[in-house]
Design a protein around this nucleic acid. Structure first.
Ligand SMILES: [Mn+2]
Ligand SMILES: [Mn+2]
Ligand SMILES: [Zn+2]
Ligand SMILES: [Zn+2]
Lengths: 153, 153
DNA sequence: CGCCTTATTGATAATAATATTCAGTTGAGG
DNA sequence: CCTCAACTGAATATTATTATCAATAAGGCG
């Protein structure tokens, strides 16, 4: 069941150190931002950069890109394709908060929804092949009601 | 249930013309390539470009990018994030061939698997919100057995 | 069947997200 | 503390994808 723990600074440090990596203030700040992000919000690299700038905790874009990638590969964050041209990120929540995305390919309006069966099926599929699960996300690409009406394409 | 028909030149033409667009030899060729692609194969824009070059049916990269995007937004092709840095495409098959992807985030080794329940859940989720379904794909990000062994990160 | 309008193509240049480089800094283990 | 490799930030490079624009060719229509 997506063994994605709720990370604390301590557990993040432990997991990093285990691999010879380090806990830095920047990584701690970024984790905190994602942990406090309201449900349904997703940040791009630029979003995160701007947000931190605002908070007076400026972190370089280089470090932001590196950290987003690192944490995604650790299974701490999820990398999402919610819009064309750039990725979005959110914290990778375990079971009761784990969810999926219904995305309008025209305007990018996104609706989240939960599904236990999907998480189960995904977990089993990974297990069967001996893969170590990091994230499991159903992406539904569709056209929202508004965009259906506006006949534009 | 993902009303993605099996496209023929005629039905492609019909659907294009309906929107004031045109069927061109290039679009026909590209559709044919994807329809004849063996199960489990996915093409990037560059892959497709090289493949057509080889076949002596060279099509410009501009047109390839435009066509891949157009056909994805029409629901004819699926746009997949199977590797970092570029997208892959495959034909969007209806029910009995519809499938999902288990992807190693380290080496990009990908395994396909089917699941009727997921397609059902996705279809229902879109319906409930009044979205017009184009594609429904579960992406499982994980680490394959080989990459688990090689302790590298 | 031709004609006219306009979508489409291909070549080229532009854009923008992300990666890389490297010198200076700082975690973490001993 | 000390050492050393991992990390950061600034600048630069990369590269997938998009935009531009003149030339071409679908397709609706008379
Ligand atoms: Mn979300
Ligand atoms: Mn596939
Ligand atoms: Zn929309
Ligand atoms: Zn692998």
């Amino acid at each position: 069941m997506l063994n994605a723990p709720v990370y604390t600074s301590a557990s993040l440090k432990a997991e990093l150190n285990e691999k010879g990596w380090r806990l830095t203030p920047q990584r701690e700040v970024i984790l905190t931002v994602f942990q406090n992000l309201p449900e349904g919000q997703h940040l791009s690299a630029e979003d995160l950069y701007a947000l931190l700038e605002e908070q007076g905790e400026g972190i370089s874009l280089s470090t932001i890109y590196r950290t987003l990638k690192l944490m995604s590969r650790m299974g701490i964050l999820r990398e999402l394709e919610l819009a064309e041209g750039h990725k979005h990120y959110e914290i990778n929540q375990p079971h009761p908060h784990h969810h999926h995305h219904l995305i309008c390919v025209r305007c990018s309006k996104t609706i989240e929804f939960k599904s236990d069966p999907i998480l189960k099926i995904g977990t089993k599929a990974a297990q069967k092949e001996g893969y170590h699960l990091l994230d499991c996300q159903l992406s539904i690409h569709a056209v929202c009601p508004t965009c259906q009406r506006s006949l534009l394409v």
